[in-house]
């Protein structure tokens, strides 16, 4: 369990470092953000729809969070 955690954490750190340093040449100029600026490309989405889905899966499954905090917020699980 601990070994797996260490391996996954190390992978996360390496990937993050790679994305920050190695990928600094990636990306676009501000005037090329036309497609990225569309609502459908937002990573946040509709907060009400996300809350409905998170609550439903949280109350039926043993996992939660990932994109946001795992938390709890209700006694449904």
């Amino acid at each position: 369990m601990k070994n797996k955690t260490v391996v996954l954490l190390a992978s996360f750190v390496v990937l993050t470092s790679f994305m920050v340093t190695g990928c600094s040449s990636l990306g676009v100029d501000p005037w090329d953000r036309d497609l990225l600026a569309r609502p459908a490309m937002s990573l946040e989405g509709n907060p009400v729809e996300s809350a409905f889905s998170d609550k439903m899966y949280f109350s039926r499954e043993a996992s939660s969070g990932g994109q946001g905090f795992a938390g709890g917020g209700c006694g449904c699980n």
Binding site: T16, G27, V28, D32, R33, D34, L43, G66, A70
Partner: peptide
């Protein structure tokens, strides 16, 4: 989160609870 191109972006998270 990283913009990879004009069409592509990615996100990688780690959480501990």
């Amino acid at each position: 989160t990283q913009t990879l191109s004009r069409r592509l972006l990615t996100q990688l998270n780690y959480s501990y609870s």
